[in-house]
Design a protein around this nucleic acid. Structure first.
Length: 167
DNA sequence: CCCTGATTCGC
DNA sequence: GCGAATCAGG
């Protein structure tokens, strides 16, 4: 059909669209960390924080009294590999060399209510408990896992710090 | 040591 | 305006 996007002002190149921002605010208000939000949406952590600051949604410490005025630091800075995104994590754990891209960000089309949850459904909470929009991820979760591949990485510590595994 | 939050600068 | 880089704190 030739009839496509009547309001096609911008293509899919738009990073922060209304849906994206809504998700951002939703997760932010839900109490999720910037890293969680970033991985869920599919952007970097800084991008989320930057957008939040732009929207003035920074919680807690806002433009209080920062002393980071001087930015003339030393050039001896090793190029640390920025935070690993969901895609990288999944690719790493699954070792998928043929398919570097899993399925993009976490699917929200499978979200379901608590009653719809099954043994093999992701139980990642969406929105805030009590809200009429409250639901769960509902994606396919591996055996014994309470979350899908993407959320599982978020639910559990991204790093094996094994703090409790001592002794 | 690592991670998270917020600010500032460059594009 | 968005994103990376940087700094500060826990």
């Amino acid at each position: 059909m030739p009839a496509v996007s009547p309001t096609a002002s911008q293509t899919a190149s738009q990073t922060w669209t209304d849906e994206r921002i809504e998700l951002l605010k939703r997760h932010f208000e839900a109490g999720l960390s910037c890293r969680e939000i970033a991985a869920d949406i599919g952007v970097s952590r800084n991008a989320v924080i930057g957008k939040l600051s732009r929207l003035n949604l920074t919680r807690g410490r806002t433009a209080d009294e920062r002393k980071v005025h001087d930015r003339g630091l030393t050039p001896a800075r090793a190029p640390r590999a920025v935070p690993r995104l969901q895609y990288e994590m999944l690719a790493t754990i699954y070792g998928e060399t043929d398919a570097p891209v899993i399925t993009g960000p976490i699917d929200e089309a499978n979200r379901c209510s608590l009653l719809e949850l099954s043994e093999n459904r992701c139980r990642w909470p969406i929105s805030t408990p009590g809200e009429d929009d409250f639901c769960f991820c509902g994606n396919a979760a591996p055996d014994g896992q309470s979350y899908c591949a993407g959320h599982s990485r978020l639910a559990y510590r991204p790093n094996s710090r094994s703090r409790t595994m001592r002794g």
